[in-house]
């Protein structure tokens, strides 16, 4: 397994290298001049030319690319054209915000999705099955934008249970250490702030969880249905095992592999694709950081941001692959 992991990690290098090239090519192919955007509507032609030169954007693309790669090897992600800040320092708070949100969303999605899928499969063609699967269908097709605003309306304005936007009560701000606020508040021994942070996390993570939850539920149901037709399950049931043991000890282990794949892919997707949720809930995450950067043609931020998301995506998939072997001992990676 160790060799396998090492080999997979090594193979990351060409993948990420390829990513940089693709991203670089795409953002330089799209029209829109960063100098024009930075200087705004009030800029003169000369000013735009000067700035283009100073930003080094008038050089041939391959020189720009090699410079970028060179600084990447020294661990330098570049400087944002818009804020003039080093991306190394800028990006982490955004990334942490997104990790926290994605983590919470996937927790909800897996917990409810897998269990709803199991119950639906066990009681297939029952009222529960039908209701759950219709809800899943609605979940997959629900516009997050609308759902988010409805959540705010219902749970904040009408019921007054939860805050609408942001990560914290700004009147009592959380001191950032790791920028994962649930962790930070615990480190600082502030249970009140922990609760506040958790409360802020609920609405956006539920909104973000709907689609993966629905997909996971449907996937779990279909694989469980297959497994449950297997002889050994009939045997297990025949010898009088309770539903809980049959499902969680015998069936789930055999049904979970395709579900794991879906969970891995969905987690990766949420990392970069939470822009809508982050926008509605005023969540300062990486999706919005990138979205703003695209609007400003902030090349270094777009490049480095996508690179980091891609790296995490590949990592998650590696973890999923390793989990396969853990769940199913027949899978071996060492040959």
């Amino acid at each position: 397994m160790l060799t396998y992991t090492a080999r997979r990690l090594l193979s990351l290098i060409p993948v990420l290298f390829g990513m940089t090239l693709v991203v670089f090519a795409i953002i330089h192919a799209i029209p829109g001049d960063p100098a024009q955007v930075i200087l705004g509507q009030r800029a003169t032609k000369e000013a735009i030319e000067t700035l283009t030169r100073e930003l080094g954007l008038d050089r041939p693309w391959y020189i720009q690319y090699f410079d970028y790669i060179k600084s990447l090897f020294t661990g330098d992600l570049g400087t944002s054209l818009r804020t003039r800040g080093p991306i190394n320092q800028e990006i982490w708070p955004y990334l942490a915000a997104t990790l926290e949100l994605t983590g919470a969303a996937m927790f909800i999605a897996v917990l409810i999705g897998v269990n709803a899928g199991i119950i639906s499969a066990w009681y297939s063609n029952s009222w529960f099955d039908y209701t759950a699967m219709i809800l899943a269908l609605i979940g997959v097709s629900m516009p997050i934008f609308w759902l988010g605003l409805m959540e705010q309306w219902a749970f904040s304005i009408q019921l007054g249970w939860l805050p609408t936007t942001g990560r914290e009560d700004v009147r009592d701000p959380i001191t950032a250490i790791t920028n994962l606020y649930l962790v930070d508040t615990l480190i600082q021994g502030r249970p009140d702030q922990f609760i506040t942070a958790l409360k802020h996390l609920i609405l956006p993570s539920v909104a973000l969880a709907t689609i993966p939850m629905a997909i996971i539920a449907r996937m779990t149901r279909s694989t469980m249905l297959e497994v449950m037709k297997a002889d050994y399950i009939r045997t297990a049931r025949a010898k009088g095992l309770g539903m809980f043991w049959v499902v969680y000890k015998h069936s789930l282990k055999n049904a979970i592999i395709p579900v794991l794949t879906v969970i891995g892919l969905q987690t990766g997707l949420l990392l970069g694709g939470a822009i809508l949720t982050e926008t509605i809930f005023g969540w300062p995450g990486i999706g919005r950081y990138l979205y703003d950067a695209i609007g400003y043609r902030d090349y270094p931020v777009i490049q480095s941001g996508i690179l980091i998301i891609a790296a995490i995506f590949v990592f998650i998939n590696l973890i999923v692959d390793l989990l396969y072997a853990l769940v199913d001992p027949r899978i071996k990676y060492n040959q």
């Binding site: 309306w153 609408t164 942001g166």
Partner: peptide
């Protein structure tokens, strides 16, 4: 910063 106009109004209505 709350980018979405309606969400910002929701935050105002909720006293945040």
């Amino acid at each position: 910063v709350i980018p979405e106009n309606t969400a910002r109004l929701n935050a105002l209505s909720n006293g945040e």
